[in-house]
Design a binder for these strands. Structure first.
Length: 503
RNA sequence: UCCCCGAUAGCUCAACUGGUAGAGCGAGCGGCUGUUAACCGCUAGGUUGUAGGUUCGAGCCCUACUCGGGGAGCCA
């Protein structure tokens, strides 16, 4: 069946020729004697034009009543036409309904988040999800390609794990034949041992965090890639990270331009994502947050938001007045009603941001040296920059035991976060690892961890320890940033969120 | 764990300070040869999340619960 069908995304090779397509009915419009069937086949959309008289009358009638997402094959002549979605359309001569669909729940109109997640198995077919999935595919491919082409060896780390990388409380516990084990929250400790064998390695797979975080940046199951490099320092890691992220973005721009356009991503800004990225220390960030600059920035943003709110409110009032005026054509009323729904949605969004602005400003102003940066602090810093920002040298007390202490300033560690621009926040966290046996042992004890559990990890510092480090990049956050998607739950096919798993 | 917001037709949303619930989309029928979330006409579709309370009267006010959204802490 397959090899006789042509893929929609290769139609330009068949201009003027007769081909058969196999796919699903995405949408259809019709008038008395002509029908437009938009068919999706997984590679793209194609408008198929059915004219009465050019197909059997019986078929014409069947196609007219064919429900959304019915599967079918169509035969016809390919022709270029500007008016068509992909630039090519099919003049249909015949069609065969494979399976008629009736009452498909996801209509071409707007739907709520909850509804769509409950229909995730079907929502994957929708344009926006389809585009995001393709971008994700490119990102995952770029991740592998970057490391494979730069001398890294893939190391698959275990999902069932005996050790704690970050924080005990954020682990999912599983009953492993009567013994408690955890689902991995990082492959880093394992990958460190592999780096001492191969030099440059990476692991790539799902990661599990039981954090009770209900935000647009969190999933309990997400994908993370973690490179680890022997004989490197903080500067080396930053360079690796900025080259890596820039490569990912460039690959998406090469392969997914039409997807980015369809979903309205900001490609002009993506074009500028090239090394070097901004570099700030935690201490610098702290003084920015506490200082005049952040205050002015936040106040300016608040003003902008208020302006925006005013404009939205004016527009809404305008439309409402128009609605009251009466004596309108039906289509005009509909347009206004649709417009109002959109405006009210935008207004709600702006209002939340206005509500949050002073809270975030206060949190920033109250920044205390020694605390970890909050999500809102990162948002502010990332909003203040048009390119990704590295934040380095965090206070030791706020960070994990394995991060190497800066010998020039014992209060900080040689770590970094990478904040994506325009408010997307953290997409990478990484560090140079403590390679000194005694210091590491001390840190393990300081954090109240059991040194016995980390015996093998300590061994790495016993037998030929070298300066080394790495980082973890969150795939979904990267997808969200690049696609401009507000919530990372749209950036993984089947999201797992705190207390909520739909299908 | 805490704070804010919400729940009305299959879906997305209206209903000004309490007065018998309305649109659009979707569905069904009819019309239209170039539509782009097509359009036009008609039809069907509701115990307003649940349980109480206030009131002559509750979608609207009060209490509790359930579910959902956003955010804080924490993080990729």
């Amino acid at each position: 069946m397959n090899n006789t069908h042509v893929a929609v995304n290769s139609l330009q090779e068949y201009d003027g020729k007769e081909v058969a397509l196999a796919g699903w009915l995405y949408n259809s419009r019709g008038s008395g004697k002509i029908q437009f069937l938009i068919i999706r086949d997984g590679t793209g959309l194609c408008q198929c034009v059915v004219e009465k008289g050019k197909v059997p009358d019986e078929l014409f009638g069947e196609l007219r009543h064919l429900g959304q997402e019915s599967s079918l094959t169509v035969t016809g002549t390919v022709r270029a036409d500007e008016r068509s979605v992909g630039g090519y359309e099919l003049a249909v001569t015949n069609a065969q309904i494979v399976s008629a669909s009736d009452g498909y729940p996801i209509t071409p109109k707007s739907h709520g988040v909850d509804f769509l997640l409950k229909h995730r198995h079907l929502h994957l077919r929708s344009q926006r999800q389809w585009c995001i999935g393709r971008v994700r595919h490119t990102i995952v491919d770029a991740i592998r390609r970057f490391f494979n082409d730069n001398g890294f060896v893939l190391i698959d780390t275990p999902i069932f794990t005996t050790i704690v990388g970050e924080d005990q409380q954020s682990l999912f516990e599983v009953d492993y034949f009567g013994t408690p084990l955890h689902l991995t929250q990082t492959g880093q400790l394992y990958v460190e041992s592999a780096a001492m064998s191969y030099g440059k390695v990476y692991c790539f797979g799902p990661t599990f965090r039981a954090e009770k975080s209900k935000t647009r940046r969190h999933l309990t199951e997400f994908w993370m890639v973690e490179p680890e490099v022997a004989f490197t320092d903080l500067d080396g890691l930053l360079e690796l990270a900025e080259n890596f992220v820039s490569f990912i973005v460039s690959q998406v721009l090469i392969n997914n331009r039409s997807d980015l356009d369809t979903i309205g991503a900001d490609t002009t800004t993506l074009e500028t994502i090239k090394p070097p990225f901004y570099r700030l220390t935690y201490t610098e960030v702290g003084s920015i947050l506490r200082g005049e600059k952040a205050k002015v920035f936040q106040a300016e943003q608040l003003r902008q938001l208020q302006d925006e709110r005013q404009q939205l409110e004016d527009k809404i009032a305008e439309f409402e007045a128009e609605q009251q005026a009466g004596q309108l054509k039906q289509w005009k009323k509909d347009k206004i009603a649709a417009e109002l729904i959109e405006l009210r949605g935008a207004l709600a969004e702006v209002n939340t941001r206005i509500e949050n602005n002073p809270k975030h400003a206060q949190l920033a102003a109250e920044f205390q040296w020694g605390e970890d940066l909050g999500g809102s602090d990162e948002t502010i810093i990332s909003q203040m920059h048009d390119k990704p920002v590295f934040v380095t040298h965090y206070p030791k007390q706020a960070k994990a035991f394995y991060m190497k202490t800066d010998t020039e300033n014992e209060k900080v560690v040689l770590n970094f976060d990478l904040l994506a621009p325009a408010g997307f926040g953290e997409i990478i966290g990484g560090s140079v690892r403590e390679d000194d046996y005694d210091r590491l042992l001390e840190r393990i004890k300081d954090q109240g961890l059991n040194p016995e559990t980390y015996e093998w990890y300590l061994d790495l510092r016993k037998y030929g320890s070298v300066p080394h480090g790495g980082f973890g990049l969150g795939v979904e956050r990267t997808v969200a940033w690049i696609t401009g998607e507000k919530h990372i739950r749209q950036c993984i096919p089947f999201p797992r969120m705190m207390d909520k798993v739909y299908i």
